[in-house]
């Protein structure tokens, strides 16, 4: 217990970095994922193919390997990072965007066919149909799964701690090494800080889900 209170600044620093990693990669993943989903349903075959390929490969690659790629292989390609943080953000958002794309696509599929037919019959182009009619409805239905994806993202950001980013898990490792006699408390402290993010998000997801279910 004492250990947690003594190292509160370290925990706080790690907590903020975890939040930062999650928020930035979350926003990037949402944007890229939606674009990928749009590409997946677009009339241009190359876009469809690319999106499908990307999503399929990313969903079947362990995040650790994506991290490994960003931290080790990319620098060799000439893409060097000053710190590991941008590499972590790149890895997290590249990985999560594939899952976002799948979620959005399932949302697009859940929109009633008549909506798209109506949009087309009043002369809308594909881009208009998608951005004005389909996506607003699709995004609404995928809010709960999206929140679950964000929870997973917060938890996944802990892998960055294994690649020299000092976020919650990174600090946890360091503190556990420094306080060999109080490892239990050190790690429980880390757990509590993770729960501080994930549990409220989970409750939010449940609430939204109930609301959407009633509205339907």
């Amino acid at each position: 217990m004492q250990v947690i209170l003594e190292n509160l600044p370290a925990y706080w620093d790690g907590f903020l970095r975890t939040l930062f990693l999650s928020v930035v990669s979350g926003i990037l993943a949402l944007i890229v994922g939606t674009i990928l989903a749009a590409a997946r349903v677009s009339p241009v075959a190359a876009l469809r193919g690319f999106s499908m390929f990307y999503v399929e490969v990313m969903r079947n690659t362990p995040l650790t390997i994506v991290f490994f790629f960003c931290a080790v292989v990319l620098p060799r390609l000439g893409v060097t990072f000053q710190q590991f943080e941008p590499a972590a953000i790149l890895a997290l958002s590249a990985y999560t965007s594939a899952f976002v794309a799948e979620a959005v696509r399932s949302g697009v599929n859940s929109v009633h066919v008549g909506q798209a037919e109506a949009a087309r019959s009043i002369g809308m182009k594909f881009s208009q149909t998608l951005t004005l009619i389909i996506l607003p409805q699709a995004l609404r239905t995928v809010v709960p799964p999206m929140i679950n994806l964000l929870i997973a993202l917060v938890k996944n950001s802990s892998i960055a701690g294994g690649f020299y980013v000092m976020e919650l898990f990174g600090y946890g490792r360091q503190l556990a090494n420094a306080n060999g006699n109080a490892v239990l408390w050190v790690l429980l402290g880390v757990a509590i800080f993770y729960l501080l993010i994930t549990v409220p998000l989970g409750i939010l997801a449940g609430r939204v889900e109930r609301k959407v279910a009633i509205a339907r």
């Binding site: 938890k155 946890g172 880390v190």
Partner: peptide
């Protein structure tokens, strides 16, 4: 259940490894 679900897997592994 909520505790286990809200926890990064790697943290759990680390916990078991050390504790």
């Amino acid at each position: 259940l909520e505790f286990l679900r809200g926890m990064p897997v790697v943290l759990m592994m680390f916990f078991i490894l050390l504790v």
